[in-house]
């Protein structure tokens, strides 16, 4: 990158900020913020900061937190798309902030503005940090663990390659809540189990070693279960792991209709 810094009005950057790197572009990051100790309601705040094409949105949030406003609150841990901490609504769609590259976000013309909101459908605690408890409550309710009876084998529980392949897609879930909080049914009715819980039920329902499939199917057959899904595919679009979420939900529906795996 040899292009000079475009839009050079960098005068309002804080004095202790690192020098603007070559090739950086000034962008506006608009964040929906909320501090329960000060604010009555959520409100937007904008920050003009430099961004490189190789930056991720998470880098921009770090810049704001480290050099402009230390009170900006958000979750992040591994920053490499595996821990599932930093799901947020970026430009209106649920993404992991650590997986969205700035080179894909720059506007074709004019100055780039990026909006960042907390994920919807869960209570906002502060800024981009939401209370995940309703999400994990639904997760726990579908018994996301191996249930097996009888004598434990002395070695591993044997499974064929095909049997393992059957539920491979849904083992990829990192519980970031991007899918569940992109679901319009979950937004309006929080008692719906939501895509993530169904994906994790799918992971055990179709596991040949597990013996509680019937129990999980009964749980998902009730009023808050899979029949609430309207196949809007928001969840599939939102999943940072590329899980075919809607397909998994449909497979659970099919298993319920024919009670066979």
């Amino acid at each position: 990158m040899t292009a000079p810094t475009t839009n050079s009005t960098t005068a309002d950057l804080p004095s202790d900020a690192p020098p603007v790197p070559e090739g950086a572009t000034m962008v506006t990051v608009k964040i929906e913020r909320y501090n329960p100790e000060v604010d009555d309601d959520l409100h937007w705040e904008s920050y003009r900061i430099p961004a490189l094409p190789s930056d991720r949105v998470l880098n921009l949030l770090h810049y704001i937190k480290w050099y402009i406003d230390g009170t900006l609150t958000f979750r992040r841990s591994c920053a490499h798309g595996v821990c599932g901490s930093d799901a947020m609504r970026i430009n209106g769609v649920n993404r992991l902030a650590c997986k969205v590259l700035m080179k894909d976000m720059f506007a074709k013309k004019g100055e780039t503005t990026i909006t960042v909101e907390p994920i919807k459908g869960l209570p906002v605690e502060k800024d981009l940090l939401v209370n995940m408890e309703p999400f994990f409550e639904a997760y726990r309710a579908i018994k996301p663990y191996l249930v097996a009876t009888g004598n434990e084998p002395t070695r591993e529980r044997i499974q064929s390659v095909a049997e393992r392949e059957r539920f491979d897609d849904t083992t990829k879930c990192i519980l970031c809540a991007a899918c569940t909080t992109s679901c319009p049914v979950y937004w309006s009715e929080g008692s719906y189990f939501g895509p993530a819980a169904i994906v994790n039920a799918h992971r055990f329902i179709f596991d040949s070693r597990d013996e509680a499939a019937e129990e999980r199917l009964d749980i998902l057959n009730d009023v808050d279960g899979v029949w609430r899904c309207r196949t809007t595919f928001n969840c599939t679009d939102a999943c940072p792991r590329g899980i075919q979420v809607t397909k998994a939900i449909q497979e659970v529906k099919r298993a319920l209709m024919f009670r066979r795996r």
Partner: peptide, 27 residues
């Protein structure tokens, strides 16, 4: 706000009713 969630493992959901009503209405 309390620093820990109250009884995080208690389920607030009623037990599944083993009813196929939603399944049949969907079909």
């Amino acid at each position: 706000a309390p620093l820990s969630v109250d009884k995080p493992r208690s389920s607030t959901r009623p037990a599944a009713r083993r009813s196929n009503f939603e399944l049949y209405s969907w079909i």
